[in-house]
Design a protein around this nucleic acid. Structure first.
Lengths: 375, 375
DNA sequence: TTGAAAGCGATACCAA
DNA sequence: TTGGTATCGCTTTCAA
């Protein structure tokens, strides 16, 4: 539902070439006002060295503020570099230093907005740490081999994997080549480094919340079958209910999109009234949103007729028309921690694998009916 | 509404270290089964040359299928490389060749899902062309200087800019340094290369559709004031209405998020009935979606009481609970064309600026009431 | 058809 | 405190 075959159609193309004189303005008389550029080649360490009448090693050291270079020379070279518009060549630097400053990012399908939110957080955090993000994958399905190969080709310092489970290829390549990997929002089956929300605690918290508010027949809409995330959430949720003396909750197949949640919601709405659950737990907000839409379309009111809770805390679920009660995962903190773990491992010192679990927060909003006020 | 200050809170961290023996399993006995790796250093052209008993230049040539190397040698070296698990070092290659194979990507705020969809398309297309995407920015606000500098540091071959108008900094840096830029979904005010939807044609098509279906008082919810996209769409829409003899449509301030559309929708719903528009054009789907939600919450039915149309064709707008009539932009085709333009310019041959306009498609769905069937 | 050698740009080591 | 120089891995003349 996300990647449309637009490609073949819509090829009615209008090309508007700009007037030649303006084009010239752009290609020839380019004004180096804001970003000066030496005519011809870009300035390099050795060209600066020649200008300054020193050795290139001195320039290199001066530019990174080496204490051993006299302040006077340092200042002079810095000024020269600024004037010439010098930019270090990260390729050369990476070649000799062995570290590229590049971090790979593997994202899941954008049909679940949480990946976009994670991406935005990752960009911010990477910026803060002076790292660059290489977008290796985004979408359903597994990562292409050629793309995964880029991990090695560009000598990436590490890799962040957020996708549910389909990126084992990238993980394997990293493992085989000592490229540090951190899994985000996903507890790996194999040994690895991961930062995740405490899905069990979250699932339990949601179950307790539903119990406290008087629900007796919750159902679950499952995420993708192969994701630990979904499984853990559902498992903990179910366990808490059973421990409270309820029947094991019914499970409906879901996925990772609004459409999947919608289908599950339709199935639930179509149930005879006496079989109908009194609450739905969507293992991801996007699923719960889809379910809500299906329920409403079927004439059921949320939360009057049926309560709905989600898990993720995406922005869209917080707003109208959902205002969904959910367990929000601390995205920023997770990303920050993930970069932290990565940075530690990028230094080369072998560190043991670890799994960091951050606790989410129950967001009480408007989709849970309180039939049984406490006290 | 998108980037929450989660960072400071939620720091209750549980660290679960794996058992030492397992950790060892991962750090020491790493199995090079799937992705073989030479013990110690990775194989290089010269290490392969030594193994094969030829010169490194021969290896280099053989590996890229140079006709001048005898087929026998070529095969032998290829086999050797495969066996050793050789991976070319893109950093070194970029250093000598002057081309990095890297393309920068600048995205807008993820509060508008269209950026995520564009990102996913871009990943696919980059893969197809053997280019790597460096994520330079994603979010509202302008790009960081340090990030923009990466364009030069990593000697990127080009840059794709999708963000509305805030990335002029990146554009300026590119312009000053002969890095080709292509603007996506945005017609630049300055001379540049761009691929966009024909926003005027689209706005007009939507206006005509509303006219044909008997609407007489449409209103517009504007996008960000500084985006050509929104302006063009609104302008063409308004012009078509006026040419049909209607009053100029009322304009409501909007933005680039559901929340902005929602606020505009509330303002419209709060209007006295006789002042209320009979249709709303949201300059972006996400705005129209927000407006729909506000209208429905205010008890107005869409399309019975008021029609709504959008522009973009994002996946979320096509599904329940919106099923919105909209003008969809051919995203895949735009991205493909954008990469094409970039590729042409990456060769170094100076080409004139051009603007490519692709026509969108009116998607008639369920949010326009047909009061006046044709004929 | 293949080899030797000169860089690409930056860093780091060893001298001075 | 600074200068040479080797080196990172690969490509590309220029010779053979």
């Amino acid at each position: 539902m996300s990647a449309k075959p637009y490609f073949e159609r819509h090829l009615e193309i209008k090309v508007k070439e700009l007037e030649p004189d303006h084009a010239d303005d752009c290609t020839l008389k380019r004004k180096p006002r804001d970003f000066p550029r030496v005519s011809g080649a870009r300035p390099t360490v050795s060209s600066l060295a020649r200008l300054a009448g020193v050795a290139s090693s001195t320039v290199s050291r001066a530019l990174k503020g080496d204490e051993r270079i006299s302040p006077a020379v340092r200042r002079r070279i810095a000024a020269l570099a600024a004037e010439a518009g010098y930019t270090p060549n990260a390729l050369a630097r990476g070649l000799v230093g062995g570290r590229s400053g590049l971090v790979g990012l593997v994202l899941g399908p954008v049909s679940n907005p949480i990946y976009a939110e994670m991406m935005q957080e990752a960009v911010t955090e990477a910026e803060r740490r002076g790292l660059r993000l290489m977008l290796l994958h985004a979408g359903p399905g597994p990562i292409e081999d050629s793309t995964a190969a880029a991990l090695l080709q560009y000598r990436m310092d590490g890799c962040l994997i957020t996708s549910a489970g389909l990126s084992s290829r990238a993980a394997a390549i990293c493992a085989a080549n000592d490229v540090p990997v951190v899994m985000l929002n996903r507890v790996p089956k194999l040994h690895a480094v991961a930062v995740s929300c405490d899905n069990r605690a979250g699932g339990e918290a949601l179950a307790l919340h539903l119990l406290e508010t008087g629900h007796r027949r919750p159902a679950i809409i499952m995420g993708n079958a192969d994701t630990s995330t979904s499984l853990e959430r559902a498992e903990a949720f179910a366990t808490a209910l059973v421990e409270a003396g309820l029947e094991p909750p019914r499970r409906f197949p879901g996925g990772a999109s609004h459409a999947a949640g919608f289908a599950a919601g339709q199935a639930i709405a179509g149930l005879p009234a006496r079989e109908r659950p009194d609450a739905i737990f969507g293992c991801a907000d996007i699923l719960a949103m889809g379910a809500m839409d299906a329920l409403r379309e079927a004439g059921l009111r949320v939360p009057e007729d049926i309560s709905v809770v989600g898990f993720d805390g995406i922005a869209a679920a917080a707003a109208a028309p959902y205002r969904m009660t959910t367990l929000s995962v601390p995205l920023s903190a997770m990303i920050a921690r993930g970069f932290g773990l990565l940075a530690e491992r990028m230094s080369g010192i072998p560190l043991p694998d670890e799994v960091v679990l951050l606790r989410g927060t129950l967001q009480r909003r408007g989709t849970v009916r309180d039939t049984q006020p406490p006290g």
